[in-house]
Design a protein around this nucleic acid. Structure first.
Lengths: 357, 357
DNA sequence: TCGAGAGTCGAAAGAGTTTCGCAACCTCCG
DNA sequence: CGGAGGTTGCGAAACTCTTTCGACTCTCGA
């Protein structure tokens, strides 16, 4: 009978003998010590690999669940809440932990070393991927993550070179266009735009959709009616005040998001302009709070929840080694018509020389 | 001269000698082997503790950052968003990771084994403490966490035996009372209450504050005017419709939260009851979205952000071994008066026989 | 009372790491 | 070219900790 029926597990000594070195040298190779020549280390590690050696003291790192990091600048907005809700649901469904993190300070975020350290910290926390939720100035972080081999997916990216990042958004161009067409269809010709920051790809795309719709309808764009600013109630309030006090005010306003739209409604009320009688207002996002206003907002619904889910699924697929199907995935938007839009009191064509019919 | 000037690090042998056992036994005690008597293990571990022994081989696990688990049923509400914002800020400031988790299913949540498994999973993920955000039916989880030695702090606990859990809330009683007194002071006597679920301690306390204020003012409470239901827009809408169609409708409504208040506003508009002319409405929470309504809501401001921070600080202190200063911490609320409250159109005393003066 | 089985413990063997010395090599001058 | 002085790479041996396995004790039923 064979002397050793059970093939004894591979031990340090076996590796040492096989590699032609001592136990000590193998140990050094495995433990990243520095008193070993690089090529010796490589030879030893190759032997380790080949024999399938596993140290017995390696108390099998209790197999940690993979984690995903969701990183965002500001949590307190309905938009963010709903996206994060989708992220949480998808992460839970996938059996991964979800780490919620604030990014490094704005000041240090763009520094390579700080960004690399931050990414390393995420890895140490067990992160297999990062989901960035409208994260400002992410380029250094993106590069650091790429260097570290951690996949990143952005939702509605801001301040970044287009195409250099895998991202999830909605059909912003189509959303801006359909909202504008809705107003054009009601008979509006002087339609103002109060949009989000120029750095936001989503905001830019919506603006382009707005322009495209005006172009198609042959309505000239009045630059005085186009504003870009932060996504905030205050933005809508301030710009709407200015617009409504113009000698030739708009009959409708497209807001870059629901918060801006709320500001517009407030400005209209302040100036005693009835909505929708004297001014139509369209929001963007269609968070439930859009139904809190009076009149309730017509708004472009974004599948915020779905965007969060899609981002998680994409980043997990990338972590598993699959290339993303597309650099930029867009989910469909739909216009939800409520009571804040109506035909203009009287047709206003003074500034629309090309308007047909 | 001393034979050993450098106090050699504590070794397994030292512990063994000091505890009067062999190296093997100490090793077994440390490694959770089962061939060792419980009291021997305890004695050995005490010695280990006393000598400050650390095995040289445990270089393995890089010291993971401590993590906190935030667990919640529903993320998509302004209330939750702001509490979570405070939790995130405090966790970041404290240098702990924040894991966002959904609790086990409602169905299995109350089962001891499922709860224990869930808690074990949190521990495995590196959790040193758990923050429960208005978590329904948490008792089994609380007990499991206690068994596992993981501290838990609840924010606005629901469905649980009072006092058995460390929790953070706001001065709900005082908030309910001051809101009621505000309305009484304006001259209202028929004041309805549309509150949150009976299971919520916060909702109950607010209701008691409302009753106390009525009592103090000598205003009899009409049970028909007191409703308890979910925190939701729909709740306010439905109950306000009923109340406003009463033969003797209330002149003011206190809502259990801003969402209910929004529903009340919608019902009033539906029935053409002017606010605040025909009906005063007070909300609760004072989330920014309370300012989105028209008229803007008078609301009781809760320091939601501060509640989140306090919960994190408390649970971290408990994790560090400190007993909580108090089982139940309440942060101050303040009434924010806006345009949704005004004196009643005419004094209505028909149902307030004890009203003084 | 005896024996089987379960529960404890330690001596010794194993596994892996670290120390330390040695040899080889490298680098500068003279 | 040669040698002093330093650096580098490796292994023997010492060391730390873990695991095996035999021995001892206790319990309980026959």
């Amino acid at each position: 009978m064979p002397a050793r029926p059970t093939p004894r597990r591979v031990t340090l000594d076996d590796v040492a003998r096989s590699a032609g070195v001592s136990k000590a040298t193998v140990s050094k190779a495995l433990n990243a010590r520095d008193d070993i020549a690089p090529d010796t280390r490589a030879r030893v590690l190759a032997t380790v690999e080949q024999l399938g050696y596993r140290p017995t003291t390696d108390r099998g790192h209790p197999p940690r669940r993979p984690a995903l990091v969701a990183v965002l600048d500001v949590l307190e907005s309905p938009y963010m809440t709903h996206v994060l809700g989708g992220v949480l649901a998808a992460a839970t469904a996938a059996g991964t932990d979800l780490l919620l993190r604030l990014p490094p300070d704005r000041g240090t975020r763009t520094r390579r070393t700080a960004a690399a350290a931050w990414v390393a910290q995420q890895r140490a926390a067990g992160a297999v991927g990062i989901v960035g939720l409208t994260l400002a100035e992410p380029d250094a972080l993106l590069r650091a993550a790429q260097d570290a081999g951690v996949p990143v997916v952005m939702v509605d990216p801001v301040d970044t070179r287009e195409g250099a990042v895998v991202s999830v958004g909605a059909t912003n161009w189509a959303g801006g266009r359909s909202a504008t067409e809705h107003l054009l269809g009601l008979g509006h010709r002087r339609i103002a735009w109060i949009g989000g920051p120029a750095g936001s790809a989503a905001a830019r795309e919506r603006l382009h959709g707005y322009r495209a719709a005006l172009d198609s309808a042959g309505v000239a764009l009045d630059p005085a009616l186009v504003r870009s600013d932060e996504f905030a109630v205050e933005t809508g309030l301030r710009h709407a005040r200015e617009l409504l006090l113009l000698p030739d005010p708009p009959t409708a306003v497209l807001a870059g998001d629901d918060e801006i739209a709320v500001g517009v409604l407030a400005a209209a009320q302040e100036l005693a302009v009835p909505v929708p009688g004297g001014l139509s207002v369209v929001g963007y996002d269609d968070t439930p709070q859009a139904g809190w206003t009076s009149p309730r907002l017509t708004s472009v619904r974004q599948p915020l929840d779905g965007m969060g889910r899609m981002a998680v699924e994409t980043v997990l697929a990338m972590a598993a080694g699959h290339a993303p199907a597309s650099w930029y995935v867009q989910l469909a938007t739909t216009l939800v018509v409520r009571e804040s839009t109506a035909p203009p009191a009287r047709a206003d064509r003074t500034r629309a020389p090309h308007a047909g019919t």
